[in-house]
């Protein structure tokens, strides 16, 4: 109990202290970078939920990030132009309200996850990896060739989402809101992992045939987990588009899905909290090393190999020790 609690408390304190420390150091950019870390941590945690606990190695998770981001981007662009959102049975001119935009982003991502999951979960192993990758690339090309919403140039977000009582244009407010949403999401996912539903999910990762022989129709549990992961991926997307005030097809590219998997493995599969550690280490290293050389992957690659070899439960497992196994 002790060591794990200390690690988590220290991590939380550190995250809370980022804006004041950045202000003291006169490095406001640090808050921007830290927000990026939190958003990627959220996306990676939602991926860890299905990979680390459910054994579903999805190589297309960036699709849900992208769908969430485009949902917000598109809705906001119609609000900006005063035009109606197409394909709706009623005239709706979009909105800037986060309270509508963000749940909508989660819903759209969840719906796509339902369709992609229903088709992909007929397969397993390397086929599952390939088919999720294929679906994500399809969506990538769709947005790349969709001129209405910027095509390859992407879409600018002219105004960040609006939340009553908060000014999201302020980077510090945005950072704390992102942190709050990350913590809430992690707690929800953690809760799910330890519920009956989560027990079935974790059992399926270990021995799916045995689980079916016990009488559990495993696919519907996996599908629901996939949809939940998609929804939280969509939330991360809604945050991303607000963070960068831009969304482009690059957000759905397979390299992005790969990056999310790297974060999950680096932080520790099946730990959720590891995603925060993984995202912090990957993005900060990327930032630092990219300052010295543009070939930052050459430095990062061997580092990854070392982590996988020597910290088999990832960086979080290495920090929190044996107690992390209960996560």
């Amino acid at each position: 109990m002790r060591r794990r609690s200390v690690v988590l408390a220290a991590g939380l304190a550190l995250l809370l202290a980022v804006p004041p420390l950045a202000a003291i150091a006169g490095e406001p950019f640090a808050v921007t970078l830290a927000s990026r870390v939190l958003i990627y941590a959220l996306a990676a945690a939602s991926l860890d939920f299905i990979v680390g606990y459910g054994g579903m190695v999805s190589f297309g998770h960036a699709a849900f990030l992208g769908l969430g981001a485009y949902t917000v981007g598109i809705v906001a662009s119609h609000a900006f132009d005063g035009t109606a959102v197409p394909l709706l049975p009623f005239a709706w001119h979009g909105t800037d309200s986060a309270l509508i935009q963000w749940p909508l982003a989660m819903l759209i991502s969840a719906l796509f996850a339902l369709v992609i999951g229903a088709l992909s979960l007929r397969t397993a192993g390397v086929y599952f990896i390939m088919i999720t990758l294929a679906f994500a690339q399809m969506l990538y090309h769709l947005f790349l060739t969709l001129p209405t919403y910027g095509g390859q140039d992407g879409l600018n977000l002219w105004r960040r989402s609006e939340i009553p009582g908060l000014d999201l244009a302020d980077d510090v407010s945005f950072y704390y809101l992102t942190l709050a949403l990350l913590i809430i999401s992690l707690l929800i996912l953690k809760r799910l992992v330890h519920s009956r539903f989560g027990m079935v999910l974790r059992a399926g990762k270990q021995n799916e045939p045995r689980l079916q022989a016990l009488g559990i129709p495993t696919v519907r549990y996996k599908l629901l987990a996939f949809v939940i992961a998609g929804a939280f991926g969509g939330l991360a997307g809604a945050l991303t588009v607000n963070h960068t005030e831009f969304v482009g097809p690059g957000l759905l590219h397979w390299t992005r899905s790969g990056e999310l998997l790297v974060i999950v493995i680096l932080g520790g599969l099946g730990s959720l909290y590891g995603s925060v550690v993984g995202a912090a280490v990957l993005l900060i290293l990327e930032e630092v090393i990219a300052g010295w050389t543009e070939h930052w992957m050459i430095v990062l690659g061997p580092f990854l190999v070392l982590v996988v070899l020597f910290a088999r439960r990832g960086l979080y497992g290495w920090l929190a020790g044996r107690e992390a196994e209960g996560d």
Binding site: R196, G198, V200, R202, A203, Q206, L214
Partner: peptide, 28 residues
């Protein structure tokens, strides 16, 4: 299920005879 405790393993089997395991909040 090698990662489960003996008790969790059997609890899983008990759970398998319930109508469903779509319970999301309570710690199993």
């Amino acid at each position: 299920f090698p990662a489960f405790s003996a008790l969790d393993t059997v609890a899983l089997a008990v759970l398998a005879r319930q109508p469903h395991a779509f319970r999301f909040w309570r710690d199993a």
